[in-house]
Write a protein that binds this DNA or RNA. Structure first.
Lengths: 188, 188
DNA sequence: GAACCAGCCTAACCCCATTAGGCAAGCGCT
DNA sequence: AGCGCTTGCCTAATGGGGTTAGGCTGGTTC
């Protein structure tokens, strides 16, 4: 018998791909085992349980997204940086809906701290360097930006913007304009 | 034997309460049957299946939220209306996390059209009457507002704002200020 | 080559979803 | 009142997914 050569990493990656294909809620230990032509129980030497698998996918996605955002941000500042960040974010969510859904899980504090979540926060703050905001305005602005991006992408994905002639792309573009204006004139 | 007196409405309401207590993802036909001290199969004369149950909870939540928002909005205009709307929204999400999660499901187009979703859109537009915006700016602004509210509430719930001295309440308040400013000076 | 160990397996158990088919309580009717 | 029908809940059975205990085996180590 040849071994399937399973590792936690391979399982996580396959789970992420599966999530993008069939939806995160349908990522199951059984489906993953079928993918590797292996028994369900065989996976339990690599992952603790189904929840552990989901968390691994979430961490993978957070790291990937942080990389893409970092790449998009390189060498840009001001509105340029804002738009690049936002588009990288939305793009990732569209290309990887399952991974994006995975990211929405609550992580326990230690896991969250060890994740790429803090990197996101740093990068968002970096954007704000182009807008001269000091604390606590900076924190408020970071939270609002993140809320807007996540909210938009999330509503777009659940179909909240359909049935209206105005395209989501157009509203997105205007939303970024509005955010830029807002950050430049952040109310004292 | 006394009957449990099940109806689709009672089931839906109990499911909503269960969702708020144990999380929407843990709302299960079995758990609901246990709640009524009844066999699982007994529920199937009232609901089509588990998915149907979830959709009913979502529709209930959408209607409840629309009612609360409508009440909050009564007699207010301008920033007053904006803040009242936003607080009613956030408040509902905090008080009813399970119901709020239920609302995030994708609804098929007919169901969505028959839901309270359109009422939300109308009310959001009503707020904008205080801000003189014409199409398509109005649509863009509605989408941005909704995104911000949903995004903020959603990030707050998944713990995105913990581990930082600045309270979520403070950032929320400033975010509403910012939105008000933004709507008053919406970039042409 | 003996011992080990990593990697996968079988077997077994539980929970949940769903369908088919039954029985009985209470209703409407004559 | 008594007849039947509908409604409401039941038993039984199937199948999927999650998880654990314990076993076999082939390659690695000394």
């Amino acid at each position: 018998m040849t071994r399937a050569g399973l590792t936690a990493e391979r399982l996580t990656l396959a789970a992420a791909e599966l999530a993008d294909e069939v939806g995160f809620e349908n990522v199951t230990v059984s489906a993953l085992a079928r993918h590797f032509r292996v028994r369900d129980a065989s996976l339990y030497s690599h992952i603790r349980n189904a929840q552990d698998l989901r968390i691994r996918v979430a961490l993978l996605a957070l790291a990937e997204l942080a990389d893409r955002v970092a790449a998009a941000l390189a060498g840009r500042a001001g509105k340029d940086a804002l738009v690049a960040f936002a588009n990288a974010y939305r793009d990732y969510a569209k290309r990887h809906p399952g991974r994006y859904a995975a990211m929405q899980q609550e992580l326990d504090p230690e896991t969250a701290a060890a994740s790429a979540g803090p990197r996101h926060a740093e990068m968002t703050r970096a954007i704000l360097r182009g807008y001269q905001l000091s604390e606590p305005d900076q924190t408020d602005a970071v939270r609002m930006m993140h809320s807007t991006f996540h909210g938009f992408v999330s509503l777009e994905r659940t179909g909240g913007f359909r049935h209206h002639p105005r395209t989501a792309d157009a509203s997105w573009s205007r939303t970024l304009d509005a955010l830029d204006t807002l950050l430049r004139t952040w109310p004292r």
